[in-house]
Design a binder for these strands. Structure first.
Lengths: 252, 252
DNA sequence: CGCTTCTGCGTAGACCATACGCAGAACTAG
DNA sequence: CTAGTTCTGCGTATGGTCTACGCAGAAGCG
């Protein structure tokens, strides 16, 4: 029973997510499954948003009592972590034949964006610790694999992935914010950006915020342009930056 | 009293943050100040973390009753928004003489990083709407101003700023997560990264996560290298990407 | 058939945000 | 000076949250 003190504590629920869990030969059969609980929570978040996910609500969805969940999950935060992991799902398959890192990373980024689009609440989950769950690490691995063959060092690859996922997640967060603001104001989603622009224009003094007003005056925010174009632009900039480095490494 | 229905609703507390608030000639003098409340909340978050910031706790800190705060703030979320705005503070002064956009944006990014370092809880605040507060927009304006003179279009400038702030914020989030995990496990901050690496190595099967294991095997995560170097690397990559675009625009 | 061990879950405690409404302060109009 | 108005502070109360604890009973082992 002595916990190996040289290793950091690992939550049992996460261990179970990795498939390593001493199953008990004694006692009654568990009536619930960790996977089932997480799936129910994910479905609930998809349908009614993250605030609807409370322990009692998830339990009710499963026909169980609130406290029953705590036999499978140490705390709510663990459930949230596992929800995120489940919502990410399997990472995109590595690009089959083409060893082009750029198309690979691009596919990867679009896949993450798609996952975040399907489960917009992911970016709202307050995360307390670095990624340790299977799918999460699977995505990281899939991304790193795209960088094989480039002359980048391992830490550099890691930094590139951080850069990439930062961008995708933050873009998704902003999109989700706009969407929420839209439906909070009862507006159709297409009209929220212009409304936001008008609000900023009214609040911010042109003398104190000249560059901001230049953007507004240009009408850049009036038209509700394709969010995909927006995303593509940033992604291209980012990959251009990586490409500069790759060229320097392969040339050296 | 008819609210102009063509404009979206603007929370009174945010209006007050912009300095436009019809002060009441009647009634008793307010005993509290919105600025004072926000300052107390910020101080509390700095000292004890974001979870310590509850309405009752902030009120106690001010020697007032809980419900007194609701005369100044419509909901807790508004208080959080204003806390973030206050914590950001004034944006860095635009680079004096040098019209080099790159050093300007670099200074900007380092300044944001410094702000997030001083108030690590910022990245933990769940934000529900796009930025509308004075300092927040001030930072945006300051960043956009760095891009004057480059041939970028206004939407392009906006995208660049989104890209940049995404990176800075996400890097800060990851740092904060590592730090939290460190002190939750009772470890000194320097030892948390290697511990994390060892955990991943133990959980993830090398066959299923080859690229991840390559990183671990390289020892990239063992040494607790200077986080500033890490940050600089990503920032350089990002600015390289922007530079490619700027060159294309000025050449065209 | 006990003994052990584990599950489900009822109860209860400590918080939390906040809707509502009242007492009284500060000002204006007469 | 007085009455009216308006706003502040805040006490009370409601309905929600997470979760610590402990008990009843199921399932298997010796």
């Amino acid at each position: 029973m002595e916990p190996t003190a040289d290793e950091p504590t690992i939550p049992p629920a996460i261990a179970e997510a990795w498939g390593l869990r001493g199953r008990a030969p004694k006692g009654p059969r568990p009536g619930l499954t960790l996977g089932g609980i997480v799936a129910a929570a994910v479905a609930l978040a998809d349908a009614e948003g993250l605030p609807a996910v409370s322990m009692s609500r998830v339990a009710k969805e499963l026909g169980a009592a609130t406290m029953a969940l705590y036999r499978y999950v140490g705390a709510k935060e663990e459930l949230l972590t596992l929800m995120v992991d489940a919502a990410y799902g399997e990472p995109p398959a590595p690009a089959g034949s083409g060893p082009d890192w750029r198309v690979g990373l691009s596919r990867w980024a679009w896949a993450e964006r798609e996952a975040l689009r399907r489960h917009p609440w992911i970016v709202r989950v307050p995360i307390g610790s670095p990624p340790l769950t299977p799918h999460q690490l699977g995505w990281l691995d899939a991304g790193l694999r795209c960088l094989d063959g480039t002359g980048l060092t391992e830490p550099e690859k890691m930094s590139v992935m951080l850069l990439l996922t930062s961008y995708v997640r933050n873009e998704a967060l902003l999109t989700a914010q706009l969407l929420d603001a839209a439906q909070a104001a009862g507006r159709e989603p297409g009209a929220v950006m212009p409304a936001y622009a008008r609000l900023v224009a009214r609040l911010a003094d042109p003398a104190r915020f000249p560059a901001l007003h230049a953007v507004l005056a240009s009408g850049a925010l009036d038209s509700d342009d394709d969010p995909d174009d927006e995303f593509t632009f940033g992604l291209d900039r980012l990959l251009d930056g990586v490409e500069t480095l790759v060229r320097a490494r392969t040339a050296g």
